[in-house]
Amino acid sequence: MAEWYEQSFGEDYLLVYKHRDVQGAKREVHQMIGWLGLPEGSKVLDLCCGMGRHSMALHEAGFEVTGVDLSDVLLREARENDPKGLVRWLKSDMRKLPFDGPFDAVVNLFTSFGYFERDEEHVQVLREIYRVLKPGGKFIIDFLNPAYTIARLVPSSERIDEGQRIREKRSIEDGYVKKRIEITAAEGEPGEPRHYLERIKLYPRERFEQMLAEAGLTLEAIHGNYNEESYDPESSPRMIMVGFRK
């Protein structure tokens, strides 16, 4: 049976997350550039690049960018949005990358971490980040803040978009935040409902820092959002970790 992340990042994902805009990605990249402190021309890996919004913004900022994702659909969208081939797009599982690098920086954004069942698999992802970074290379992992997520979880929501009714149910189960998505025709047209699951393991700061250390990575700073606010374990919406490989 296919894993949830092999099923959920298809055509319907483009509909569910169509509100993620290019300008927002550019603002986030502008902030990331200050945190990374890299010169123009640096090599950056966008790990789990999705449709490539951040990859393209990083290229526009003057970096040499590689975008990696497991989804054929999202990589297709990324390539269509990059007709000149300005970014190198590759398909790969994040646990086993198809190159050695070395990269000056690796970024992992929009909670593209915590997908797997075992801690060892998540540590393996961090070890791959370590492996493809050059010594002194920087990383950014933009993860959800567990306490904030649990306290403000919206159990259910519903909307209509492009003639489709999108129902989302969210829950905390066994240390994971889970979102169950159902998509149906809005006006009662024939067709079976499509169901998807998204599942992210909730790692508090202390455990995440342990896993980074296991992989040989050093945590330098944590930001609570992209407005340079310092991280507060209760009130920050994000846990944006910045660090480096020794």
Rank of each mutant, 00 (worst) to 15 (best):
M1T: 12
E6M: 11
F9G: 03
F9I: 08
Y17G: 04
Y17S: 08
R20E: 12
R20A: 11
V22R: 15
V29A: 09
Q31S: 14
Q31M: 12
G37R: 01
K43W: 12
V44A: 01
L47D: 01
R53W: 06
S55Y: 00
L58V: 02
L58T: 02
H59R: 15
E60A: 15
E60Y: 04
R79N: 03
P98A: 11
A105Y: 01
A105M: 05
F110C: 12
F110Q: 10
T111N: 14
F113P: 09
F116P: 09
E117N: 09
R118H: 14
D119F: 05
Y130I: 00
R131K: 13
F139E: 00
I140N: 00
N145E: 00
R152E: 03
V154W: 00
P155N: 12
S157V: 02
D161F: 00
D161V: 14
E162Y: 03
K169N: 13
R170F: 02
D174H: 09
D174Q: 14
G175T: 11
G175I: 12
G175F: 12
Y176A: 07
K178G: 00
R180C: 00
I181R: 14
E182C: 13
E182T: 15
G188F: 06
P190C: 07
E192G: 00
E209A: 11
M211K: 05
M211E: 05
L212K: 05
A215R: 05
G216L: 09
I222N: 08
I222Q: 03
I222Y: 02
I222H: 04
H223Y: 15
Y226Q: 08
E229K: 08
S230M: 06
Y231M: 04
P233T: 01
P233A: 04
E234N: 07
S235R: 11
S236P: 07
P237A: 02
V242R: 00
G243D: 05
